[in-house]
Design a protein around this nucleic acid. Structure first.
Length: 275
DNA sequence: CTTTAACCCTGGAGGC
DNA sequence: TGCCTCCAGGGTTAAA
C-alpha cells in the first residue's frame, strides 16, 4: 500500500478538491472492505460541507461538522480525483461527488476501509484504530530519546519494531528497509539493543527517506496513482535496497540480501548494515 | 505484558 | 491461449 508519503500526497490532492465544498453525494458500489462500509454513511455525509482533509499515520481523515470519515488505502488502494461522469473502472468501490469533480476509491484487494467517527463520541484521535498509533515522524517529540524509550524491552528485530507503528508511524515495508539502510543498521538487530547514537541516525534516516519520497510525489509503487492521477517513479529510480536482492549495493557493491521477518520481506546490505 | 502467525483479497509474474 | 504457485504497499485479531 501506499506508505506515508503516498498517503500524504493523496491527502494534499483530495484537500484541494474537497475542503470547503459541499459533498453532494457519496456512492458506495462495494461495501465489503476490511470492514463493511456503514450503510448509513452516504446519507450521513451527503449534502454536508467538507471542513478539512487531514492525515494520521496512514489514515486519511475527512472532517465534517458532525464527525470524521476515516479512510485507509490498505495494500492496493488509491483515491483520486476524476472528472464528473468519467467511466467507472473495475474495483472503483466508493465515490464522493462534488459539483466540480469526483473522488474515487479504487482498491482491488479491498484491504482498505471507509469508516465514520461521530463527533459525539469524542475526538477522532480516540478512535480505536488511531489511539494506539505512534507519533508522527516529523513531530518534534520524535527524537533519539523517544525512539530509544519506545524500543526498550522489545525482543523483536528493529525492522519489526519500526514497522509495528506504535512507536512512530509512517514506515511501511519499503521505507523500513530503506531507512535502516540509510542508518546503516542491520534489520535483525534486537530492537532494545539499538544504541542512542544509532537511534539518532535512524530518526534522521526515516525522516530523510520519507521526505525524499514526498518530494518526488509519494510514488513508491509500481502501479501507484496519486490524487490527480499522475503516476510516479521514485521507487524504481531510487530504492537503495527494496526489491534489489542479488543486485550490487549502491555504496559498496556487495549483493543485497532478502530475508523474511514477521512474514514480510526485508532487504539490506550485509556489509553496510551492522548488528 | 510481548510476540507470532493467520487472515482479509485480487492480480501479476513466472514455471510448465 | 491454461493451470499452478508464489508474491505484493497493511494491519487487525486471536492465540501462545
Amino acid at each position: 500500500m501506499p506508505e506515508l508519503p503516498e498517503v500524504e500526497t493523496t491527502r494534499r490532492g483530495i484537500d484541494a478538491v474537497a475542503t470547503g465544498h459541499v459533498l453532494e453525494r457519496m456512492v458506495v458500489h462495494e461495501s465489503r472492505m476490511r470492514w463493511p462500509i456503514p450503510k448509513d454513511l452516504p446519507d450521513l455525509v451527503g449534502g454536508q460541507v467538507v471542513r478539512a482533509c487531514k492525515r494520521r499515520g496512514k489514515y486519511l481523515l475527512i472532517e465534517f461538522d458532525q464527525g470524521t470519515q476515516l479512510i485507509h488505502l490498505g495494500m492496493s488502494g488509491s483515491l483520486r480525483s476524476v472528472q464528473n461522469g468519467e467511466l467507472l473502472r473495475k474495483h472503483d468501490h466508493v465515490e464522493w461527488h462534488f459539483s466540480h469533480a469526483t473522488l474515487r476509491l479504487h482498491d482491488p484487494r479491498r484491504f482498505g476501509s471507509v469508516l465514520w467517527h461521530s463527533k459525539s463520541d469524542g475526538p477522532v484521535e480516540q478512535h480505536p484504530l488511531l489511539k494506539k498509533l505512534g507519533v508522527e515522524p516529523f513531530d518534534s517529540i520524535f527524537d533519539a530519546d523517544w525512539l530509544k524509550k519506545g524500543l526498550a524491552g522489545r525482543q523483536v528485530s528493529i525492522k519489526q519494531a519500526l514497522l509495528a507503528g506504535d512507536i512512530v508511524v509512517g514506515a511501511g515495508n519499503i521505507y523500513a528497509s530503506e531507512s535502516l539502510f540509510r542508518a546503516r543498521i542491520h534489520p535483525k538487530t534486537q530492537a532494545a539493543r539499538v544504541s542512542l547514537i544509532r537511534c539518532a541516525r535512524l530518526v534522521e534516516a526515516l525522516r530523510n527517506t520519507l521526505s525524499d519520497a514526498l518530494d518526488s510525489g509519494g510514488s513508491t509503487l509500481r502501479d501507484y496513482v496519486n490524487a490527480t492521477g499522475e503516476a510516479g517513479a521514485y521507487f524504481t529510480l531510487h530504492a537503495a535496497v527494496y526489491e534489489r536482492a542479488g543486485e550490487p549495493c549502491r555504496v559498496c557493491a556487495t549483493p543485497i540480501k532478502r530475508i523474511v521477518q514477521g512474514q514480510r520481506a526485508t532487504y539490506f546490505c550485509p556489509s553496510c548494515q551492522k548488528i
